[in-house]
Amino acid sequence: MTATALERAERRKAWAFALPALLWTGFFFLVPFAYMAAISLWTRQGREIVATWTLDNYIAFFEKAHLFKGLVVSLEITAIVTVISIVLAYPLAWIIAERVPKTWQRFALIMAILPFWTSYVVRSYSWLLVLSKGGVVNQALLWLGVIAEPLELSANRTGTVIGFVHFFVMLLTLTIYANLIQLSPNYRRAAADLGANAFQTFWHVVLPLTLPGVMVGAFLTFVLCIGDYITPQILGGNNELVLPQVIMLQLGRRADFPMAAAMSLVLMAIVTLAYIACARWLKMERT
């Protein structure tokens, strides 16, 4: 079947519209990405990158404890943060969707995510003000006589987790609320009509129906959390480095670009695996 003149003209127009974005993504994303993948298979000699193909960087990453530990710490912190954030955010989203009058819901939601709009760097810094030894929490607890010595709330894992949870509680409240509000009220009416009490309705009907949305939020949390450098750098101290910090360290102090590239790709592989797992789970839910 030969295309008519009209169809050929349409196709030319389509390419003209799509090409700028495709070229931009190609030049400034795909090419750099491919180049970085190549670098990860090269080696560093002194400050020079030498194009000899080898898997040494990857092997070194899995063999050297101080490098590999970054991945373990990252995974642990991400898992803790994701679970705590969901557990805290779901009830808040539910309260906003179910207990706050309709006209105030949008306001309640905007308030719940307002600190989202502080600068990322500033947000972590302000947690430092709250959690440091002389910070608001320790001062308040000391003044109340609850503790005699300041608690170690920052410059360790606790600080990183609190900083992360703060951010992701806001994000998850938003996504879970969006899910709850989309549910047809008829599900709840039907469940109540068939004799379920409020808890049974929630447990057997509302929660399962919102689980896919929670899962998407959890995936988002996972991806953003495991790739973040700022929060652990400001709140986590120097004793326990997460993977992005280890990567930046290779780059900065050691100028080992091939090693940094290899570790970045490992990070990306983990995100991809999480994505595949999440997508399969969602697919299973739907069928």
Partner: peptide
Amino acid sequence: VSTLIIGLGLLS
């Protein structure tokens, strides 16, 4: 893709 990777790739 994490912004760290986008940034590193562009930098290289």
